[in-house]
Amino acid sequence: MRPFEYTAATDPADAVRLVAANDGTRFLAGGTNLIDLMKLEVETPRAVVDINRLARREPALEQVAELPDGGLRIGALVRNSDLAWNPVVQARYPVLSEALLAGASGQLRNMATTGGNLLQRTRCYYFRDTAMPCNKREPGTGCPSIAGHNRINAVLGTSPECIATSPGDMPVAMVALGATVHVRGPEGERAIPLADFYLVPGLHPERETVLRHGELIVAVELPALPFAARSHYRKVRDRASYAFALASAAVALDIHEGRIRDARVALGGIATTPWRSFEAERALVGHAVSHTLFRTAAERALAGAVPYAENAFKIELARRTLVRALTIVSEMTAR
């Protein structure tokens, strides 16, 4: 690791000010991703501002609170395991709890925060190795993954500049649930729908979100979405646990008398961002539950997929994963 300045902030406003003042300064929360990348020198901040103590001034940052409209506000410093084990989340948003528990390991979930996990960076081999070029890490140097090892990389949302997969599980569930990210910057707070929060690589793979430098994620809000009690996260990976998704599906269905009234579908492990599939949702809504319907929705979800040499299997795998998740949710009795 390169040397850097370290400041432990206790006041959120101070933290924002310190980071905003300098391009090379970064927020440090759970550390599970940033410190890893600093060791690799993929990230080389000149200074970090430790935000783990901010909840002393602002307890909501570490709390999960029910909102008057039936939604849920999750403080940005809530740890992944606490969120996964939260009884309200387990009862009303099982897809989120399952996604969290499908990610990483018990130790990492005790460290990783809600805000930090939204910003987890790709596992693309080339991004994580500074000996190799990478447009995301060093714009303009090229993407060696496109003609190299790309089994783990994306088939949706790619560009000729970058095909790196968004690696997370939690964000996929949150995207499906229609979450909103609340951020606080030098100019105050703003709310960003999570589906608009992420950027596909396009010509600028180095830009992954709409977050401006110095903006601190303070909370994620989930809408009430009563039918999300009937939801599920299915993750497929190379071993039974502790591995990133090759494909995953987050699904919530509102089924009334065998017909789908509303649906939420997102895919993970196959796209450059946590991938909300409005196409699949449109294909589902208004129709009677059937295997054929699910297969049609899955075809729609992957309609724009572009395979590379090693990852063509992901297109069919993602379809089947989605069909499986839809099937499981459709067979659940409403809770």
Binding site: L28, T32, I35, D36, D50, N52, Q107, M111
Partner: peptide, 27 residues
């Protein structure tokens, strides 16, 4: 592994298991 991938550095922080390789001592 020094990168949070093997669990050999598991310790408890305030009674909860965490990975010592991904925590700065100053934190």
């Amino acid at each position: 592994c020094d990168h949070g991938q093997c669990g050999a550095c598991t310790i408890h922080v305030d009674g909860r298991r965490q990975l010592a390789c991904l925590i700065l001592a100053v934190m």
